[in-house]
Each structure stands twice: as structure tokens, then as C-alpha cells.
Design a protein around this nucleic acid. Structure first.
Length: 329
DNA sequence: CATTCGTGAAGACGAAT
DNA sequence: ATTCGATTTCACGAATG
């Protein structure tokens, strides 16, 4: 593929044939074919177009699209030529990396001897290895940048980023990337890492700082969790309490009550199937209630990104559980 | 007036087929 | 791929302080 590109490009800029044919082609390109003064034929020399009859300069200072050197034979052309394959931004290496053809032919199309063939096999193998390693490094670098950005936007500590990058690396090694966006996998890795390290962020929060949409994020997350068989236990509602509590500015006592409620609920298995965030939100709402502190459902709903309805439903359950369940001190 | 509470319809999700 | 059940959310009106 690369070789054919070189050829076609070469043909366009081939200068050894730069004689009559080329000049004809150039003057044909001109819009004005005859002199506006006397109607005589026009001729193009160097970078200006002149009337052959009266000498009027019709156009000058044209861009010279040809090379600035001349070649007198094919050897000199090869030495002076600076053209190569056109670069493309579609490939991370701008298409400049080495490609070794799969056919066991030399440059003249002749078949290779067995010794040469083996050598080429080795070269192919190593070239491929370096190239893919290279592209993976690049990929990783970008992904880590994204992870870093999102992590700091979410106020996640260093160890979460570490974990996230480990997960991402694994995904990369298992070839889970093709077909998925770097951004998506980076986001999913971060989300998984946050949960694994006990500093969870809700899907909404993570999706908000990510550049990909939520649907794709969830899909990708499920995918990598399954493929890497990451073991992620359901988020512990208590892990959210501290953050919500401080964002709402409720008292330590209220926060303690909230945690108590959650522990009770857990003891009674009241939390299976329910959204942990919702449960945490309910607890953060119910805690202050027990200490006569004023917090509205709307406020909690705001910081926890959970509907008020859910808070209502959950906190009723929480209160019931604490009455029938454990003995409050 | 703000807040809370309850309801039913509708959407989203996981599990099962 | 579809269907089913449970959960969550939305929108509304009523009750409560």
C-alpha cells in the first residue's frame, strides 16, 4: 500500500520529463489562453505568462510547483529527490513507520532464497512488535492524561489513579481497546478503580467529567469488568456518607446517626438490589432528622443526584429497620 | 409559602428464556 | 433478541408546618 502511494506521488513530481509535455499541460491550466491586448498566443516561462506577439506579461510571480533543482539523469534524480510518501494524520506515526511486505520478493520482484526468507520473517516479527508496542505506549499516555484530568476533577486521591492506570493497562494488554474509544475505557477504568479503592463516585458524577456519553460509559464499564473479571463488590453506601455529609455541612452527630442507620439496614439485608447512592442519600437525610437538624430532601437530592422520591422511600425503610432492629444507645 | 408525602405512569436495568 | 420483575424517576396534587 505504501509502495503504491510512493509511486503515484513520484509520478506527479517527476522532473526528468519536464519538457514539452509539461509545459503544454501548464499552459492549458491557465484560464486565459490568448493575449487580452492583441489576441496572440500566450506562453508560460518560469513563473510568468507572456504574450508571444506583443510581449505583454499576463501573469507573473506564479507559485512554482516544480522542484527547485534539475536532474540530468536518473541517478542524479534519485540523489536529489526529497519526496517521500505523503504523511497522514490518520495514523499515530503519520504513516512513516516501516512496513515490510508479506511477499517473499525482493525489490525486483524476484523470489528470495530460503535464508533470506527466514531473515525477513524475523524482521517482520520484530518490526511488528516494536510498532504495536509503540502505538500502545502512545495510547496509554493519552489515556493516563485523561484519567488524571478526570480524577482531579472528581477530587480522587492518588492511589485511585494508580489503580485506574493498572486497570487500563490490563485492558490494553488484553486487546480490549479496538472498537472502543480510549476515552471510554479510561473513564470506565477510573470508575472501577474508584469503587475498588473504597472511594466511589456515582455513575453520574463520573459521566459528568468524562467526554463520552453516559450510555457508552456504562456499556464499556460492564464490558471491561466482565472481560477482566474484576471483582467489584456492590458499593458500600457508607462510603458516600462522608462526602454528602460534608457537602451539606451537617453535624458530626448527624453523620454518625446516618452511618448507624446504614449499618442496621445492612445487618437486616435491607440493601440488596437498592441503589447504594439512594440508600446513602436517605441516611444523610434521616440522620439530621434524628438530631433535629434541618435538611430538606431537595438539598440531599441535589448533592447526591438522587430523586427525592427515592430518598423518601428509602428513609422510611431505614427508620423501620432501626426501630425493629438494633437497640440505639 | 416551603416542605413533605403519596401515587401512578414511564423509563432503565438485570435476569431469564 | 425479547420479556419480565423490581427499582428509580418524573409529574402532580394534597397535607402539614
Amino acid at each position: 500500500m505504501t509502495s503504491t502511494r510512493i509511486q503515484s506521488y513520484d509520478e506527479q513530481t517527476d522532473v526528468t520529463e519536464r519538457t514539452d509535455e509539461n509545459e503544454q499541460a501548464e499552459s492549458e491550466r491557465e484560464e486565459v489562453q490568448t493575449c487580452p491586448e492583441c489576441g496572440g498566443d500566450l506562453a508560460t516561462h518560469e513563473n510568468e505568462t507572456v504574450c508571444e506577439e506583443c510581449g505583454l506579461v499576463v501573469d507573473e510571480d506564479q507559485v512554482d510547483r516544480g522542484p527547485e533543482w534539475r536532474a540530468f539523469d536518473s541517478k542524479e534524480k534519485d540523489e536529489k529527490s526529497r519526496v517521500g510518501a505523503p504523511t497522514t494524520k490518520m495514523m499515530h506515526d503519520k504513516g512513516l513507520s516501516t512496513n515490510i511486505g508479506w511477499q517473499n520478493k525482493d525489490a525486483y520482484g524476484k523470489s528470495l532464497g530460503s535464508r533470506q526468507r527466514q531473515k525477513m520473517q524475523r524482521l517482520r516479527k520484530w518490526n511488528e512488535r516494536f510498532r504495536t508496542r509503540d502505538s500502545k505506549e502512545r495510547n496509554l499516555k493519552q489515556a493516563l492524561g485523561e484519567i488524571d484530568r478526570m480524577a482531579s476533577a472528581l477530587g480522587l486521591p492518588e492511589d485511585v489513579r494508580e489503580t485506574a492506570s493498572v486497570i487500563y493497562r490490563r485492558a490494553l494488554d488484553e486487546d480490549l481497546l479496538p472498537g472502543r474509544s480510549i476515552e471510554g475505557v479510561a473513564t470506565a477504568s477510573l470508575y472501577a478503580a474508584a469503587r475498588q479503592t473504597g472511594t466511589p463516585r456515582s455513575i453520574d458524577e463520573v459521566a459528568n467529567v468524562s467526554r463520552i456519553d453516559e450510555m457508552e460509559f456504562k456499556r464499556t464499564y460492564r464490558y471491561i469488568v466482565r472481560e477482566l473479571s474484576l471483582q467489584i463488590q456492590p458499593a458500600d453506601p457508607e462510603d458516600y456518607v462522608a462526602r454528602f455529609a460534608s457537602e451539606l455541612g451537617i453535624s458530626d452527630e448527624s453523620e454518625r446517626r446516618a452511618r448507624e442507620l446504614l449499618r442496621n439496614a445492612k445487618r437486616q439485608g435491607l440493601h440488596s438490589g437498592k441503589s447504594p447512592v439512594g440508600l446513602a442519600a436517605a441516611a444523610v437525610y434521616a440522620g439530621p432528622l434524628l438530631t433535629n437538624e434541618k435538611v430538606t430532601q431537595a438539598e440531599v437530592s441535589e448533592v447526591a443526584q438522587v430523586s427525592e422520591v427515592t430518598i423518601r422511600n428509602r428513609y422510611h425503610e431505614l427508620l423501620e429497620a432501626s426501630e425493629s432492629g438494633a437497640a440505639p444507645a
